[in-house]
Amino acid sequence: MRRLIVFGILSILFFAVPTLVLCQEMALDVPLEILTPQTYYGTLLSLTGFIVLVTAFVNKWLKIKKKWGKQFLSWGVALLLGAIGKLLGWGIMSSVGWELAMLYSFLAALCANGAHTIAIVKNLLQLLKLEVKVE
């Protein structure tokens, strides 16, 4: 057991020390803007993840226990986030009308609730000739 602990500590040091030594002088010249609201609306997949995240926070606040209640909450959050994205002109919602914005929210809600995978939703969009334009 003692050898395993020593091996674990040495392996951590073996990988961590060179990384810390090599990366200490690096600095970014451009500001790092990863988590802007526009990034959550960039693709259908990122909108799906954002719906799951917001639904989890709202569910923690409301403390909904039943499965159907969580489903309705997720659908409501998806449509609300889609409307907010359309009003503010973010991501994939900026260049489409209200009908398509709500359709994208509906499809993202399908993925967020586990009803469909993102591949099935993309095929459905192609079938309806409504491909998502990524800018």
Rank of each mutant, 00 (worst) to 15 (best):
S74K: 09
S95D: 08
I84F: 06
F14G: 03
L35I: 15
T48V: 02
C111M: 07
L62C: 05
A115N: 11
K65H: 06
F14W: 04
L35D: 14
V30P: 01
L4T: 09
I118K: 10
Q38A: 15
G82I: 00
V121M: 01
L35R: 10
A78P: 03
F106Y: 12
W90F: 08
F15K: 11
I118H: 12
V52E: 12
E25F: 15
L87Y: 14
G85Q: 02
T117S: 10
A112C: 01
L35W: 10
L32Y: 14
G42L: 14
Q24M: 10
K63M: 04
L28V: 13
K70F: 04
S105L: 00
K60V: 03
L10E: 10
Q38D: 14
V17L: 09
K66F: 06
G8D: 12
L47T: 02
L62Y: 08
P18K: 07
V17H: 05
G82L: 01
G49E: 11
G8K: 13
L62S: 11
T39I: 09
E25I: 07
K67L: 15
A112Q: 03
L10I: 05
L88T: 05
S95I: 09
K67Q: 12
V6E: 14
G8T: 15
Y41T: 07
I92M: 06
F72E: 12
L124V: 12
S94G: 06
Q38T: 11
Q24C: 05
A108R: 02
G97P: 02
K86N: 07
L80M: 14
F72G: 12
A112S: 13
A27H: 15
V58W: 01
Q38E: 15
A27Q: 12
P37Y: 08
R2F: 09
P37E: 11
A115Q: 13
I118Q: 15
L20Y: 11
K122T: 06
L4I: 14
K66L: 05
W68D: 10
A27G: 13
W90K: 03
M93W: 09
M93T: 06
S95L: 05
K122P: 02
F14I: 05
A78H: 02
L81R: 04
I5H: 07
W98Q: 05
L13D: 04
K129S: 15
